[in-house]
Each structure stands twice: as structure tokens, then as C-alpha cells.
Design a protein around this nucleic acid. Structure first.
Length: 515
DNA sequence: TTTTGAGTTGTTCGA
DNA sequence: GTCGAACAACTCAAA
């Protein structure tokens, strides 16, 4: 790698780069994605871990290590984030804690240390940077409005202290404005975005950042920070341990190994929640315990229909990130403004029934039990329950989005809001409003033997397969025989789908006519 | 500027 | 049971 003097190319020297005026679309600050573009040298830097809990192939950590002498590492349990969670039960806090342990071990084995803080990150980072006497803070960039605002403030406050702030692309292949239409505008339709994404992809973008090769540059610390206990953070244990979710890089690697055995069948098996068809890597993507470059590289190199379909899902992830960045209102408002006029029914009791798995539709209730008991829900089921809430019950997609936000281990604002708006037909590239999932048909098609339903709804164990998807169609006598009387052991359907479908079509029609 | 082709994941109805 | 059409035109992106 060519060594460049700090003076070289000072016009685009990242240390002096401004954060950009908030709200002003203009030209985004340049990002350093180039392995050879590291020009600025520092004596001491601080690397701030966030949703990138790995020391291998970590772009920001690599840049920090290559940029100078000693690198301190910190993880902040950000009270601004933790206080927004519903305490005291949140499996994600446990996932993070468990993933920090091996990360810290790896840093220690290389002679470094992971500084731990439980504080407001936006004030703690400048404070820590100053007390350590570093010249720069490195981190991997985030794409959500709230984290963007936090990072702008950190950048500003560090600037006042004369400390540089470098936010590096790490969690996506292409960020923000890297894939644009020929007119230079962001895509809002997935397929042309995907085509442009694939066209732009080259080995360069899949190359790993060899951060692990430079850990000898980690700064030594006299004092070792203890990991906070769950209770110190204001949380109590959940059933997280029983779930046996692999954590840290090792958990991600194990999960990936299993997936690679069946990735070529992904296209054919991914829609069946009773089958191990999907990757189960979403939580690792969320917390960065695996590198997206590694995943995309594996999928791209595989050349099977299964791998291609899975790569599409990874591209969807980038797509949602860039949509949120370019259309930040879409996290809270309908992407298509005319749909703000929808008169949602928003019946609280029906919403509670949906949350608590009491809708009387087995596939919906089984899915919601999976979510409530594990923090995970199969992708096909996410679509089915989202369609049911927004179309059958006519509950505002934001209610469902917030509920998922509170429960999903892999929750990510960009993908979650995008997915809900897709299901509600209010989003960019959403499904047509008349495409309304039939919960019984979907159940019959994707859980034909009811294996998934029976796993989560033992009260339906003895209902014959044929009737499992719509148990109310069983005669009262047969219900008795199966030990499951509708209205007693299992609720009657909260709504008649055929009628609800007509109701939804009418409602969406009023908006279209008003537009 | 105009034209053209295409658009994640579905359902229902009637022949 | 199988198949095509209707659902609704509309907007995006590229040529």
C-alpha cells in the first residue's frame, strides 16, 4: 500500500470534512471506501463499536488501525437507546452483551481492551476522546434519522475539541447515493435498483477489510473494564438463553455454515416456516457479527438460483437503507402522501388480539406466538400478519411497525418500515392495494401439514390437517372430538376474511378517488 | 421529449 | 382442477 503524506490531497482530507448542513440535501460528504485511500495519520485514535460487533473485516476499525499509532476501542450502552426500549425485558440487550464478550476477548488477546460505558453516547464519546487524548474518532456509519442526528452532534462536538470524526461505510455494499438512476436520482423501484446494483458490483466492493491483521496496534490500558450486568443496564433476563441463539462472530459463523448447506435450495424452501429454509442471519446482520461483504461475496459467487434469490434479499437490505436515507419521512409517514388520507379503523381491541395471538386464524396466531416467544418471525409470516393487520383489520401500518420494533431481535428501522409499507400498499414499490393475502390460503400453501401451526398452537394438535387452517369450519361434534371447541379452547375468527377484504378494497378505493 | 416496457412475495371468479 | 383475466391504471426508469 502506498504511503501518502498527510499534506497530500488536503482538499479532500477527511479530517477537515464538514458534517454538512442538516436537512440540506446537497452533496454528501465523501466517504472513504478505498483500501488505499487512507492518507491521514494519527498518533492516537478511538474506534467506536456500534452495530458492528466484530473485529474481523470491520471497515471502520481497519481504517482506524491503519491510520495511526494506537487505537482505543469503546462500546457505549447508549442510554438514549436503552431508555427507549420497554424495560426490563429485551432480548437484544442480551444478544449485545453476549456478543461483546468474545469481541473483548479477541481485542484483549491482541493486547488491547474494550472500554465499556453506560451513558449518553453523544456526550460520552467526545468526553472519552478528550480524556484519552486522541486526534480522531472512527466509527462505522449508520443510516437512520436518529443516529444521523446523534452522529452530527458528535462530529460537531468533537470538532470543537479539535478532534476529527470519521464515519465509514461498513454495514452495506452500496450506501445512500452510490447506486442512482442515470438521471442521478435515487431509485424508488426495486428491480431497476437491483439491476444497477448488480451492474456496479465488482470484486472491489466485496473485498474484506483485514482489520484483524492490525490488532497489534490496539492501545494497551492499565485498567480493564467489566462488562455491565444485565441488571446494571436496567434489564432482567428473558428466555434468551433457552433460545440458543448463537451470538458473536462464532454464532454468526455457525449459522452461516448451516445455511451454506442449503443455500442452493433457498429459492424453493424459504417460504415454508416449518422448514429450515431461510438463513437466520438477520440478527447477525443487525448487529454486525458477520460482514455483509462476506455474505454478498458468498452469494454472488455461488451462481445457483437459491443463492441468487438470497442475494436479492441482501440487495433489498441496501435498497431499504437508501430509501430511508433519501426519503427520511418514509419511516413515519406513508411514502405516497395520498395514503395519509386512509381512514384506518384502528380498533384497539382487535389490535390487542393480533398482538396477543387471539385472532382465531391459526397461521396468524402461530406467527405472533413465534414472535412473542422468541423475538423472531419467519419472513413469509411477517407478510401474512402484516397483511392481516393492515388489510383485514384496517389498523395503521405504524402500529404494527412499532410492535415489531419492540419485539424483533433483528429489528431494523429501514427494512421494517419498508416492509410494513409494502404490505400496507402505502410504500414505494408497494404491492398493489388489491393484493390482499388470504390467511387460510397462505396457511394451506406454506404450512400444508400444519407443522408450524402445531408447534406454536398445541391446542390445535388434534385438529385434522384439512381443517387446521380454518378450524371453525369443523362441526361442533368434530371440535369436541378434537378436544378443541371454537370459542372455548381456541377463539373464533376475529373477522370474516371475505368481508374484510371487500371492506379494505372499498377503503383504498376512496383514497384513490380522492387523489 | 416522447415512448415503451415493466413492476417481490396474490386472490377471486368464471369458463 | 385448471387456466386466464380482472383487479387499476400509474409511475418509474431507460431508450
Amino acid at each position: 500500500m502506498a504511503k501518502a503524506s498527510p499534506a497530500q490531497g488536503s482538499a479532500r482530507q477527511p479530517a477537515r470534512r464538514s458534517g454538512g448542513a442538516p436537512g440540506k440535501p446537497g452533496k454528501p460528504a465523501a466517504r472513504i471506501n478505498d483500501l488505499d485511500a487512507i492518507r491521514v495519520k494519527y498518533d492516537k485514535t478511538l474506534f467506536w463499536f456500534r452495530r458492528d460487533l466484530r473485529h474481523v473485516d470491520n471497515a471502520g476499525l481497519y481504517r482506524a488501525l491503519k491510520s495511526g499509532g494506537q487505537v482505543y476501542c469503546v462500546f457505549v450502552f447508549d442510554t438514549e437507546i436503552l431508555d427507549a426500549l420497554s424495560k426490563p425485558h429485551d432480548r437484544r440487550v442480551e444478544f449485545i452483551l453476549e456478543s461483546l464478550k468474545p469481541l473483548r476477548t479477541a481485542l484483549r488477546q491482541a493486547g488491547g481492551e474494550l472500554i465499556m460505558r453506560h451513558a449518553r453516547a453523544r456526550t460520552e464519546i467526545p468526553k472519552l476522546a478528550q480524556s484519552l487524548g486522541v486526534q480522531a474518532v472512527f466509527t462505522n456509519e449508520d443510516y437512520e434519522p436518529v443516529t444521523n442526528a446523534r452522529d452530527r452532534q458528535v462530529r460537531h462536538d468533537l470538532d470543537l475539541l479539535g478532534i476529527a470524526f470519521h464515519a465509514v461505510k461498513d454495514q452495506v455494499i452500496f450506501a445512500r447515493d452510490e447506486v442512482l438512476t442515470q438521471a442521478g436520482k435515487p431509485f424508488s423501484v426495486f428491480t431497476p435498483y437491483k439491476n444497477a446494483w448488480l451492474k456496479k458490483l465488482g470484486p472491489f466492493y466485496l473485498r474484506p477489510y483485514p482489520s484483524a491483521d492490525y490488532l497489534h496496534k490496539l492501545a494497551r490500558l492499565e485498567k480493564q473494564d467489566e462488562l455491565p450486568a444485565l441488571e446494571d443496564l436496567g434489564f432482567a433476563p428473558t428466555n434468551f438463553r433457552e433460545l440458543k441463539i448463537g451470538t458473536g462472530m462464532e454464532g454468526a459463523a455457525d449459522t452461516l455454515d448451516v445455511f451454506l448447506d442449503h443455500i442452493d435450495r433457498y429459492h424453493d424452501t424459504r417460504d415454508y416456516p416449518a422448514v429450515r429454509g431461510v438463513s437466520y442471519l438477520s440478527v447477525h446482520n443487525r448487529f454486525g457479527t458477520v460482514s455483509i461483504r462476506k455474505l454478498a461475496g458468498l452469494a454472488h459467487g455461488r451462481r445457483s438460483s437459491g443463492a441468487d434469490t438470497w442475494l436479492s434479499e441482501l440487495i433489498w437490505r441496501d435498497f431499504h437503507f437508501q430509501i430511508l436515507h433519501n426519503f427520511p419521512h418514509s419511516a413515519e409517514f406513508c411514502f405516497k402522501p395520498e395514503y395519509e388520507g386512509l381512514q384506518w379503523r384502528n380498533n384497539e381491541a382487535e389490535f390487542r388480539a393480533w398482538c396477543e395471538a387471539r385472532t382465531g386464524y391459526p397461521i396468524i396466531d402461530a406467527a405472533m406466538r413465534q414472535l412473542n416467544s422468541s423475538g423472531y418471525m419467519h419472513n413469509r409470516l411477517r407478510m401474512i400478519v402484516a397483511s392481516f393487520l393492515t388489510k383485514d383489520l384496517l389498523v395503521d401500518w405504524r402500529w404494527g411497525e412499532r410492535y415489531f420494533a419492540a419485539r424483533l431481535n433483528d429489528y431494523d428501522l429501514a427494512a421494517n418500515a419498508g416492509g410494513w409499507q409494502w404490505a400496507a400498499s402505502t410504500g414505494c414499490d408497494a404491492q398493489p392495494y388489491f393484493r390482499i393475502f388470504n390467511p387460510v390460503t397462505q396457511s394451506e400453501r406454506f404450512d400444508p401439514q400444519g407443522k408450524f401451526i402445531r408447534r406454536y398452537l398445541p391446542e390445535l394438535a388434534r385438529i385434522p390437517d384439512k381443517f387446521l387452517h380454518a378450524p371453525w369450519t369443523l362441526s361442533p361434534l368434530e371440535q369436541q372430538a378434537a378436544g378443541c371447541v371454537i370459542g372455548r379452547e381456541y377463539p373464533a375468527p376475529i373477522v370474516d376474511h371475505a368481508g374484510a377484504r371487500e371492506r379494505a378494497l372499498d377503503l383504498f378505493k376512496t383514497v384513490r378517488e380522492a387523489a
